[in-house]
Amino acid sequence: MDAMEDAAVRLGIELPSRSSLKTQVSMFENGRREPGPEYQALFCEVYEATRMELGLAVEFAPSQLEALPTLPIPSATSPTANPAILDYLRSVFLQHVQAEPLVGPRFLVPAVQSQMPLIEELCKDASGPLRDEVVRVGARYAELLGWLHQDTGDSKSAMLWTNRALDYASELDDPALSAYVFHRRSNIAAEAGQAGYAVGLANAALKEARKLPHQVRAVALRARANSYALLGQADDCARALDEARVLADEAPDDGASLAPYCSVSYIDMEAANCALQLQRPEQAVKTLEASLTRWPAEQQRDRGLCLARLATAYAQLEDVEGAYNAASEAAAIAQATGSARIFAELGRLQPLLQPWRKLVEISELNRLLGSMRGS
């Protein structure tokens, strides 16, 4: 009784006399009456427990928070561009880029997209050099958002946001940024099966090739090579890859590049993919096996893609055990990161394993991939 009366004072609830209260509690204990909302709130306060924990009827239990007043929301003016806000956006962008290879696109799409309304507001009134910086930030965020959608398998949204990035980049006198976004558009088109369009976009990226930093020029050449491989043009593909390797090898390691991931190892992995497209699995296996021995730990998602491509190469060579081992590891990374690109590569593998579908290992792999497709 004492505890209930103390709680009633804190909650602003008026209780009957002590004798009446004792009668009420007795009726609750004997199951002859259910506590109403006020008594439920009292018991929760006394026992420091939730209604669910006390077994009280939830239909009589609106949240105590519902009785709290709603605080007034003051009207606010739109934010204006300033160096502090730009530093914040750049810092958050860098964190997204660092997290992306590890966690994959699913959890980052909402976080990155949530920054776009702020960037668009900043663009409305920004002028002079400050506007250039806002637009540049907008281009980087939109391009990253396009990439994240591409890795989820949503080519339409990927191209939409990458086109938005090109809109931003076109306002700036920055050939490198425009070329990088054109190369990204080429990648999306190639993965969507539009190889001819992809070649055209790669050529647009390389239109002012001599003005481009080495790594940007290298990734654009890689996009061109990939498109040529899809078209079956092996010689043109090889020339583009050779030039890309030289540029990647000569690129300064100053941390300022738009494509810091573009190393010789990266070009080699992409060359292996071209070899698969050109039906040259021996070449692909040799390159991919070597790449995996020196793969950076932070590039987990791309490691999964490399493994999936290696599994396809093994299958083309009828190395069933190698294909199974590589595909199983790639599937685990696909599940962890949500990368549709890894899963698409594993989909290319499955028809190649059909002759061995009755083997226990291959049957288990097909079942796993089927469950992933269903999810």
Rank of each mutant, 00 (worst) to 15 (best):
Y314S: 03
A334C: 07
T50G: 10
A284K: 01
C306W: 03
R303D: 02
N203G: 13
N187P: 06
G104S: 04
L144R: 09
A290W: 11
Q300G: 11
A176V: 07
Q115S: 06
P110S: 02
A41I: 04
L11T: 04
K211L: 14
S157R: 14
E38G: 10
P83N: 08
Q150K: 15
L118P: 06
L292K: 02
P74R: 11
A313M: 04
D173I: 11
S339I: 05
D125F: 13
L221H: 00
S157Q: 15
A220F: 02
D235K: 08
G12D: 02
D235Y: 12
R348S: 08
F28H: 06
L276H: 03
P351W: 00
H149D: 05
E250Y: 12
N163Y: 13
T293C: 15
S186I: 07
E133H: 09
D6Q: 13
S17I: 11
E100S: 00
E59W: 14
Q64P: 13
D125L: 12
E282R: 11
R224F: 08
D87E: 15
S20G: 15
L89F: 00
W295I: 13
S127F: 13
P79K: 10
K124E: 05
P83K: 10
L144N: 02
R348L: 07
R245D: 05
R348Q: 08
V360E: 15
E329A: 14
V181H: 02
L276K: 04
A209Q: 15
P16R: 10
P37K: 10
E364Y: 11
I119A: 03
R217C: 05
V134H: 01
Y197L: 15
A251M: 04
V135D: 00
Q335I: 13
L130S: 05
A165W: 02
S265H: 13
G146T: 07
A169N: 03
Y261V: 09
L276V: 04
M269P: 01
A169V: 03
I119H: 01
D151W: 01
H214T: 13
M116C: 05
L247C: 01
